[in-house]
Write a protein that binds this DNA or RNA. Structure first.
Lengths: 327, 327
DNA sequence: TTGTACGCGTTATCAC
DNA sequence: GTGATAACGCGTACAA
């Protein structure tokens, strides 16, 4: 920058101002300086910038790849969410640091933040780290969580109305007169548990409804498929199934078909997320739709508020039941 | 750091050495300093570090979210790839900057690199930026591309053997005696075009084989489904279809079924990627498998070599045909 | 093994 | 509007 200043016959601060679009510099000079910089292949050192400024204009997005590998990614839903976050950050010209390593305990997160690696965190899915998140929320680090939204939560969470989603599925089962329900999913994830709770509430409103729980440790396609087969082979015959994702619903359909069971003739089925293939699947999958599209933008918006010192409220996105062939 | 040094009764450089694990400091002092740092909530400023050092230990991964949104993501394949890259970088303790904004022209990339935002780029999919990539490769910026691997390519590319993939599908079609083939995919993407070329080569080895091309602009599920319907409604009746992804294959199955056509009775079908649901789909989808798992690690390995000043060769990963019900 | 002095490239502060 | 100067927090010669 020193060199550019010399060549342009101005001072270093002027170059800085010109290149960062300060209104304090004349347009004429700005253009001239920009031109010289371009010709000489000069670009402002972003690290020096970050060192000098209070903001790093970077946020870290934590994605639990571990639990999503090997087909474990429920469906394209997470990807859409990530795309939304990426886009919302782009608009604000903020960098996205993806799942930096070594972040386990709340202390790790605090250190990472104090090291000025990022201005805040977006954490996708509580998973099994609810405890850590509660700790972290007390440590004055800007963060927003995608996942279960619970009233008593000490941190800002954004997620779809999972409880309602579960209830909607249950109410539909009631309409169809189903009595032996099966919930498929890992309820140790709060998000999933809320759906289960919603389903249970609907169940209590019916008469003589029994709900079973098929807990899937690793919520992957193959795992779900195999566990469903085991379940059927134990002579269980549910007349309604609520799966934790559309991909899981596909696994269910496949497993049930292998035992001669077809939806909706032999059982009702509702999935979650409304991914594109669901509509054209055979049979077309009834599902709970959540507004994935705006989720990313909302997450970013809340986090920015928090970084500015605000205290944004948690937000719950609407869900609705989309009826297709399976239910 | 100054403070920590004072409290520990040592000098600033000693603290620096202790915290960065230099062998020049006694274990006793290192431990003592680390303890004090922990107690006082001190963490090394990573930006100052990056400013001072030649490496930033950050690499940028370019993902074309734009062409993957709204279900446009072919299937979970890209996600798996990203997970692999993320993991490989974690092991090396390198940060992953995801699709920074404002990178369009080769010049943008060069500036980004010169600004010391990242030590290099991993670019997922050539897409429509082949021209830019050629430019960029001449500019002395470390980068590796996932996608089509072509002999005359000026940059280091890693990808599966797309040509072979296409040929394998074609050879299978020949075995089954199919004569009216349909290729589904956007051949303006080099990766896809190579598959088409492979298919064509197989076609020339048969007698009386005709190949049609159904170009899908946006390679999304719904788009593929609708274009397939249009195709059938134009009274076309292929007896073999090669789709650019397994998700696309699902879209094809759905569209064909709507017109009363079922695989493998009415047509043979081969997909690509071998995603988990393909095995359990109805009908189970024959597909070309590529070694997604090691891809991420290889990309990172090549890029690191390049950053170290090496000139790594392009690499082609093996593919194989997995025969299931559809073909 | 440890300390001194300096520089990395930028922006904030204050004068003019 | 522009320029001189200091400061951001760290690593690294070099000396001790």
């Amino acid at each position: 920058m020193e060199d550019i200043a010399r060549i342009a016959n101005v001072s270093k601060p002027t170059v800085s101002r010109a290149l960062s679009g300060s209104p304090l510099v004349s347009d004429e000079k700005r253009e001239q300086i920009a031109k010289i910089a371009r010709e000489h292949g000069y670009a402002v050192n972003r690290n020096a910038q970050k060192l000098r400024q209070s903001r790093t204009n970077t946020i870290a997005v934590m994605l639990d790849f571990g639990s999503h590998r090997h087909g474990a990614i429920g469906d394209p839903f997470i990807f859409e969410l990530l795309a939304g976050v990426s886009e919302a950050l782009s608009v604000r010209d903020v960098d996205l640091l993806l799942s930096p390593s070594g972040l386990e305990t709340a202390g790790d997160y605090v250190d990472f933040y104090r090291s000025r690696n990022a201005d805040g965190f977006i954490i996708i899915g509580q998973g099994h780290r609810e405890r850590m998140l509660r700790d972290l929320s007390r440590r004055d680090v800007p963060m927003v969580v995608w996942g279960a939204v619970m009233a008593k939560s000490p941190y800002c969470a954004v997620g779809s109305d999972n409880f309602l989603g579960g209830r909607l599925a249950g109410q539909r089962f009631l309409q169809k007169g189903c009595q032996n329900w099966l919930f498929v999913g890992n309820t140790s994830h709060d998000e999933i548990r809320l759906r289960y709770d919603g389903l249970m509430e609907a169940a209590t409103q019916g008469s003589d409804v029994a709900v079973e729980l098929l807990n899937i440790d690793v919520m992957a396609f193959t795992e779900t498929h195999d566990r469903a087969l085991e379940y059927l082979d134990a002579k269980k015959r549910p007349d309604a199934v609520f799966a934790f994702s559309d991909t899981a619903a596909m696994a269910i359909i496949s497993a049930f078909r292998q035992r001669g069971l077809v939806a909706p003739d032999n059982y009702a089925l509702v999935g979650y997320n409304n991914i594109p293939p669901s509509e054209h699947y055979n049979p077309a999958i009834s599902t709970i739709e959540q507004n994935t599209h705006s989720a990313g933008a909302i997450l970013v918006e809340k986090l920015m508020q928090m970084i500015e010192g605000g205290k944004p409220k948690s937000a719950m996105l609407p869900t609705r039941l989309i009826q297709r062939e399976t239910c």
